[in-house]
Design a protein around this nucleic acid. Sequence first.
DNA 1: TGCCTACATGTAGACAGCCTACATATAGAA
DNA 2: TTCTATATGTAGGCTGTCTACATGTAGGCA
Lengths: 107, 107
Amino acid sequence: MNADALRGHMDALLLSVVEHEPLHGYAIIEALRERSGGALDVPTGTVYPALRRLERAGLLAGEWASDGGRRRRTYRLTDAGRKALAGERSAWRSFTTAIGRVLDPLR
Amino acid sequence: MNADALRGHMDALLLSVVEHEPLHGYAIIEALRERSGGALDVPTGTVYPALRRLERAGLLAGEWASDGGRRRRTYRLTDAGRKALAGERSAWRSFTTAIGRVLDPLR
DNA sequence: TGCCTACATGTAGACAGCCTACATATAGAA
DNA sequence: TTCTATATGTAGGCTGTCTACATGTAGGCA
């Protein structure tokens, strides 16, 4: 998976993966890998800053928790995040339609 | 159309649009707009440098021509470009499948 | 005890490519 | 003459993803 291809789609992925259950960063990375069938293996240096960015933007709400001695920051979708996710899904459909038409004009 | 979303997919678009007929930059921009149903309106500051980049990479071959007093640089797909385009199409399918699975896990 | 792996978060700096804004020039219509 | 469409190109900015590094806990195993 080319890194540049992810540009501009990371937000949608992150919001989507915490849609139904709050998750912490490490679990988000695993969820992305599993749900994509192994195609997405996003490095920590991408995910953690992106989560903070989405939190600053008010789309995610983060909270510290601890499991034994391990600290975790768990993120849940805010109402604004839920709206943003709907917009991202819509944008994704428009995007794939537009690119698809250029790459496969016969279909 | 968000600018970042195009990242890493521009090459596929440009190669695809000159697949069956050589075109010059300005015509490529129009072709992208038409074939995408108006969704793609790529600025000249994106296209011209990208075409030069693809030419340097050996995927496109450019040639100057003139229509009256107007100079045009017409690009055609090279053999390497044709192979690259096949790879880009394959990568696009993998990409959309992976992202799609994350965004719509039920389907 | 020491070592390794998995779990867990984070930062600094590099890199690449798309963008805005600007510059230049011809052709043709109003 | 002025405006729009045609046509190409550069300079510099922006930003998000990446690599590489730093830190620490938990638990298994020899």
